Simulated assay, not measured.
Amino acid sequence: MRGVRVEDAAGLADTLARNRAFMAPVEPWRSEVFYTEAGQAARIEALLAERDGGRGASYVLVEAGSGAPVGMINLGGIALGPLRSCGVGYWVDRAWHGRGLATAAVEEVCRIARDEIGLHRVEAGTLVDNLASQRVLAKAGFERYGLAPRYLHINGAWRDHILFQRLLHDDPPP
């Protein structure tokens, strides 16, 4: 896992295009441009701007030998002050499912959120029927705290999501 770079655009576009049908049931609709190198370059530039503004942190999951992208994980909506919280989102190439990669990435970004950004809490949401992602979050120490009806437009409909959180520490804000 390492910080995302504009140079990752081609590899991410290829991985996302190969996984498009696999991820369609759990992802929002994306334009055709999203699955191109140019679309990913624009997305990465936006993610880097979020990072530079202190509102996000994005990482690419890479294969150890080749360095090829096999997923991404993002901390978004970083709020400081008394809230000190953010959301986490992630995806992993279908070929890498079931190997613990997502769980390890979630655990690592929680460490970063706590130790490097100074956050108190990380939240996540999953579709009600996305049991695999719910297992990832449970293994990474998240607890379910609610249900958000018609939360995101996924696969042609507004879909309910189960909400999870992980409290990172109880220290007061700096």
Rank of each mutant, 00 (worst) to 15 (best):
33 V>R: 06
86 C>A: 15
90 Y>D: 05
104 A>N: 01
148 A>M: 12
27 E>T: 11
128 V>D: 04
83 L>Y: 13
45 E>R: 01
113 A>C: 10
135 R>L: 12
24 A>V: 02
149 P>D: 12
110 C>L: 02
69 P>V: 01
95 A>T: 09
74 N>K: 04
105 A>G: 11
148 A>V: 01
58 S>E: 06
139 K>D: 10
140 A>N: 04
87 G>D: 00
139 K>R: 15
106 V>R: 01
82 P>T: 12
67 G>R: 10
76 G>L: 08
35 Y>D: 03
53 G>Q: 11
117 I>S: 14
73 I>R: 09
45 E>G: 01
143 E>F: 13
33 V>H: 14
36 T>R: 07
25 P>N: 15
68 A>F: 07
17 A>V: 00
77 G>E: 09
33 V>C: 08
82 P>I: 12
46 A>M: 10
152 L>M: 14
34 F>K: 00
147 L>V: 14
161 H>N: 04
122 V>I: 07
90 Y>S: 05
120 H>Y: 13
61 L>A: 13
17 A>P: 00
41 A>F: 01
115 D>V: 02
92 V>K: 02
79 A>P: 00
144 R>H: 13
41 A>C: 05
82 P>S: 15
94 R>Q: 15
17 A>F: 03
36 T>L: 11
33 V>Q: 11
131 L>C: 03
91 W>A: 13
99 R>D: 12
25 P>E: 10
25 P>G: 14
57 A>D: 08
30 R>G: 07
45 E>T: 04
34 F>V: 01
87 G>M: 07
18 R>E: 15
66 S>F: 14
29 W>Q: 09
137 L>M: 06
15 T>C: 15
105 A>P: 01
141 G>N: 07
127 L>E: 05
158 W>K: 00
44 I>F: 04
64 A>D: 11
93 D>H: 13
120 H>N: 12
153 H>T: 01
149 P>Q: 14
154 I>Y: 11
79 A>H: 08
15 T>I: 05
107 E>S: 14
100 G>N: 08
98 G>L: 07
60 V>Q: 08
126 T>M: 06
160 D>H: 09
47 L>H: 09
160 D>C: 07
25 P>W: 14
131 L>Y: 08
70 V>W: 00
93 D>W: 04
52 D>Q: 13
22 F>Q: 01
101 L>N: 05
152 L>I: 11
54 G>W: 07
62 V>M: 08
19 N>I: 00
91 W>D: 09
85 S>E: 06
42 A>K: 08
17 A>Y: 04
33 V>G: 10
52 D>M: 06
82 P>A: 15
74 N>Q: 13
41 A>N: 00
79 A>S: 10
34 F>M: 03
26 V>A: 12
76 G>C: 04
39 G>R: 06
